[in-house]
Amino acid sequence: MRTPLGKVRNHGAGAAGTGHFIAQRSTAIALAVLAPWFVVNSALSLKGGNYLGAIDFLTQPLNAVGVILLVLIAFYHMWLGMQEVILDYIHRPFTKVLLLLLNTFGLIAFGAGAVFAVLMVNFGA
């Protein structure tokens, strides 16, 4: 949303594209490890399980740290990706800004909730 007047008036782009590109690729590389790890690990650990099985899974330190990292990095990657989708398809200024804000706030809220949930399972309430 930072658009200096010089850039708005046909003097070039926001010049934030390279940062976006690098962030999307570096999170992708991290997720190429974290996502398959979580899918296979959780499928094998949680099959046919119940509430206690899920708690056992989430209270193993490696799993807890892995899930927190997965949520943080995946949500950042999703934030960038959905931003790109919104900018590609939504052109009405009000709707566009509304969806961009919803993307940001929604992911921060769900991300904070998910990380706090892992901590709560581990350290009790």
């Binding site: 899930v67 949500f75 999703m78 990706g81 989708v85 909730g113 949930a117 892992v118 399972v121």
Partner: peptide, 25 residues
């Protein structure tokens, strides 16, 4: 990508359900 956006929000809800206790989970 868009579908996994929804799936990841589901994962967040699943984690919150686990934290909320057996009756929610």
């Amino acid at each position: 990508g868009v579908a996994l956006y929804g799936a990841a929000l589901g994962l967040a809800l699943w984690l919150m359900a686990a934290a909320a206790g057996a009756e929610v989970f």
